[in-house]
Amino acid sequence: MDFLELEGITKEFPSRSGPPARVMERVSFSVREGEFMAVLGPSGCGKSTLLQMAAGLLPPSSGEARIGGRRVDGPPPEAVYVFQQYTRSLLPWRNVRDNVAFAVEHRIGRRRARAAAEVQLAQVGLAGFGDHFPWQLSGGMQQRVAIARALAAEPALLLMDEPFSAVDALTRLDLQALILDIWTQRKLTVMLVTHDVEEAIYLADRIAMLTRRPTTLAEIVEVGLPRPRDPIATRELPRFLELRHDLLGKLLTRHAV
C-alpha cells in the first residue's frame, strides 16, 4: 500500500527579474508502507526541495503530496524530517538529552520527554551522553543525536536529507547500519535523499532517479538485493556492482549535460 504519494509536484521560485524560475516539473511517484526509498540525482537538482515538500515544510506550486492518503498541508504528525547539517538543527544551548526531549516535550511535558530521550539515546548507542552538549561530541555522534530526536517523535515516516554526507567514510558505514537496524525494528517508511550512488543501492528497496533542473523523474529502479544487508558482502554482489555501474553512468551523463 502506498504510504507517501507525490503527485504532479511542480515548484517555482519567484525570481527578482522576469518570470518565476521553475525548478521542478511534475514529479510523481509513491513510497509504499514500510519501504526504504532512496532519491538520487545530480547535485543541485532539487532533491532536498522535493523532500521538504513531502515533509510539509515547503508548499508545492502545483500538485500535491499525500501521507496515509491525506494531503500534506504543513508538517504532518506522522513524518519527521532529518536535516543534513546536524550542527544547524541541534540546539547548542541544550544538552543532548534536552535536544532529544525537545521533539516531544511540548506534547508530553518535560519530565516524560526526558525519560523518553534516554531510551532513544540508548537505541542510537549514546547511553550516558545525556549531559553532554552537542558541540562536545563528534560529528557522527551529533547525527546520532539528531536521529534519536527524530525517533523520539515516534514517526511512521522518516524523511532524511543526505544525513550522512557530513561525516567521514567509516562513520558513514556505522550510521548506515544504524539506520537499517532502526528501519527494520520499527517497521518505518523511509525516504532518503542522497547523491551517493552506493549509499542509495546499499540502503534502499527502490531508487527514484531525478534529472537536472528543471527536475523531473527519470526512472524508478528496483534494487532487488537480499536483506539483511552486510556492509561488505552486499557491496561485492554482482547485482550491486551492476547497479552501481549503471546508475553512476546515468548520473555522470546527466551531470555533464
Partner: peptide
C-alpha cells in the same frame, strides 16, 4: 524548520 517538523 526542525521546530516545525516536530509540530511545535
Amino acid at each position: 524548520a526542525m521546530g516545525r517538523t516536530f509540530g511545535i
